[in-house]
């Protein structure tokens, strides 16, 4: 079997195949629900209901989508330049750390503290990615390895701080930082519900990234370097400098996820701040085909599956792992569908 490129995919392929991928995901989820001894239709209904069935559910999904938009954007920006940033998790924690440091240690008023927290988070996140990128540009060290390993270093570093100097004296011994003062938190969008302005910032970031990509010379450089570094270098594009700028942008975006989770939702830093948002960001970015506006859609979709599955699991006693599997199969089927819109399988 071989693949042959399709010159003109046509509407049937462009719409039909992704729809088929979605159907495939639903199929797999149904089989798993049946294996768990539940009625698949009921389970799927509960997932949809749990994700979008009420105002509370929908806002909760958007809440969950917020960090995923940031990490998804971080990955999308980096992957465009073929900079394989697997370290959004580390950059997220770096951002969260700076947020807590500035918010709890300096005693600034909120109007001053919030922009400073965000700015410091972005800068630190960028710097965390800068190291691996300089190693890649100067010495050719594989950034997949360095960024991935940095995740563990950062998590252990945060753990050390939370067990030591940053430990909340009122925290009953839990490894947890002091809470941010009330005025150093992101306000709620809707009173009484948990959705906060971090979501608004995520949407603005997505638009900004999109504008950078299509309207600025930097966006053009990033795409050129990603698609053909040899031609980019020949044309006089400073490939190394573009990589560095990409790193600062990508790391900064991932750090915003940490800022928004701490300042908008949790109020303090703990080791379970992120249940792998940095890694899930890769799935989100891939599902969106690295398009910044697509990232918003795919982040909401992935968040919906997780939130819906959580709620379903309470009602139907089917394990929430069905969400992980569903998202994973969605990604696999979608990648396959994208492949098949561009290529057709030929025998022989």
């Amino acid at each position: 079997m071989r693949l042959e490129p399709v010159a003109d995919p046509g509407l049937v392929r462009l719409i039909g195949l992704p729809a088929l991928a979605l159907a495939g995901m639903v199929g797999v989820a149904s089989v798993l629900a049946m294996l768990a001894g539940a009625n698949p239709f009921a389970v799927l209904g509960l997932i949809v209901q749990g994700a979008a069935g009420s105002k509370f559910a929908a806002l909760e999904t958007l809440n969950r989508a917020t960090p995923l938009i940031f990490t998804g954007l971080a990955v999308a920006v980096a992957f465009r330049a073929k900079l394989w940033n697997i370290g959004a998790e580390a950059q997220l924690y770096a951002g969260a750390l700076m947020t807590v440091l500035i918010g709890t240690q300096l005693g600034l008023p909120g109007t001053l503290a919030l922009p400073l927290m965000a700015g410091a988070a972005i800068l630190t996140g960028g710097l965390v990615l800068l190291g691996p990128v300089l190693l890649k540009v100067r010495l050719g060290v594989d950034e997949v390895v360095t960024t991935l390993l940095f995740n563990f270093i950062m998590l252990l570093f945060v753990s050390m701080l939370l067990e030591g100097p940053l430990k909340d004296p009122m925290g009953m011994g839990w490894p947890k930082s002091e809470a941010l003062p009330r005025d150093a938190r992101l306000p709620r969008i809707v009173d009484g519900l948990r959705l906060h302005w971090g979501f608004g910032l995520a949407l603005i970031s997505a638009v900004l990234v999109w504008v950078i990509q299509v309207r600025t010379t930097l966006g053009y450089e990033i795409r050129a370097v990603g698609q053909n570094p040899q031609a980019a270098r020949f044309a006089g594009i400073p490939v190394g400098r573009v990589m560095v700028k990409t790193a600062l942008l990508s790391g900064g975006l991932a750090a915003m996820a940490g800022f928004s989770e701490v300042a908008g939702l949790k109020g303090s830093l703990t080791l379970d701040l992120s249940p792998g948002f940095g890694y899930t960001g890769i799935v989100v970015a891939m599902l969106a085909l690295l398009h910044p506006l697509g990232v918003v859609v795919s982040a909401i979709f992935v968040a919906g599956v997780f939130v819906g599955a959580n709620s379903m699991s309470r009602a139907a006693e089917v394990p929430t792992y069905i969400a992980d599997i569903s998202v994973a199969t969605a990604l696999l089927f979608m990648v396959l569908a994208i492949l098949l819109t561009r290529f057709r399988v030929v025998r022989g």
Binding site: R223, A224, Q227, N228, Q230, A231, A232, F234
Partner: peptide, 9 residues
Amino acid sequence: HATGSIADF
């Protein structure tokens, strides 16, 4: 192809 142009541009 490799140096003079970017195929998907």
